[in-house]
């Protein structure tokens, strides 16, 4: 049995590997190479050394977008996870209609980012219009708008992961603690949360990396207005690459820098939350 599986290994692995190589590894290596080049189209590039990187880090808007994005990632991380966790707690109690609520909270996640962005833009501008304001006039309107939008979109998704985590906690641990006299709050912090750490690791990883990589919502909600001040990193890269003649290589260099930042932050976050995970 095992030998025959081994014999057919290439048939199962090669298509996937080929797709992965064509769709990911080759473009990735090409991308790194292109970040050292000057080019108009990606197939005909000339090597220029690290000048693209120098231009990238000298770009004030890129630095601004980094801080703006980092702040957004942190704020959205907290908002999404706290609310999703509370919702998960509420929806694992014995209440009527929990399934209905779970479905309702999850549904926004099924709508694409671009569509959401445009819909929320209408909503926010509708609310701001009587005051003579608009989203595009202030970078912080855009920031709050994005947080609300992303929270609305992602809370349901994280909630499902938390619900699965909550349901896997054995009932007897909680019961024993209750008999020992631990109240609800103590049980939440001493038992539920420590046992939920694997879910928390996943959810925080997803929301922090999503926060950094946010693109479609940003594009459709604010498009970087006013004057690129609400432009986040992914969009800044896109605009540099496609929006500016002669800056394609710089956009590429920014993409490589961006990749390193996201990987770095992701790894640090994983290590931090992993170390708190406990064995059941």
């Amino acid at each position: 049995m095992e030998r025959s599986i081994k014999r057919y290994l290439p048939i199962f692995v090669i298509p996937t590997m080929a797709a992965f190589a064509i769709g990911f590894i080759i473009p990735f290596i090409m991308g790194i190479w292109l970040s050292f080049c000057e080019f108009t189209t990606v197939t005909d590039a000339t090597f220029v050394g690290i000048s693209n990187y120098i231009k990238a880090i000298q770009d004030a808007i890129f630095l601004h977008s980094f801080w703006y994005t980092a702040l957004f990632a942190v704020v959205s991380l907290v908002v999404i996870n706290v609310i999703a966790f509370l919702l998960a707690l509420a929806l694992t109690q014995n209440m009527r209609g929990t399934n209905l609520f779970r479905t309702v909270f999850f549904m926004p996640n099924l709508i694409g980012g671009i569509v959401l962005g445009y819909i929320w833009q209408l909503i926010f501008n509708g609310i701001l219009a009587p005051y003579g304001k608009a989203l595009a006039l202030n970078e912080w309107y855009g920031f709050v708008g994005l947080v609300i939008l992303v929270a609305w979109q992602q809370i349901g998704y994280m909630m499902i992961i938390y619900i699965a985590g909550l349901q896997s906690i054995p009932g007897d641990v909680n019961e024993a603690a209750a008999i020992d006299g631990a109240n609800g709050i103590t049980r939440l912090f001493k038992i539920t949360i420590p046992m939920m750490m694997p879910s928390i690791t996943i959810c925080t990883f997803l929301s922090i990396t999503n926060g950094f990589k946010l693109f479609d919502q940003n594009l459709s909600l604010t498009a970087g207005e006013p004057s690129k001040l609400s432009e986040m990193m992914a969009m800044n890269i896109y605009q540099t690459f496609f929006g500016r003649v002669g800056w394609e290589g710089v956009g590429q260099a920014k993409a490589v820098i961006f990749f390193l930042i996201v990987v770095g932050i992701g790894l640090i976050q994983l290590r931090m939350t992993r170390s708190k995970e406990v064995q059941q």
Binding site: P27, T43, A255
Partner: peptide, 13 residues
């Protein structure tokens, strides 16, 4: 998304 720009282009190519 991580490598959106490179990826999109090369995929197209």
């Amino acid at each position: 998304l991580t490598l959106s720009s490179t990826l999109a282009l090369s995929l197209l190519a």
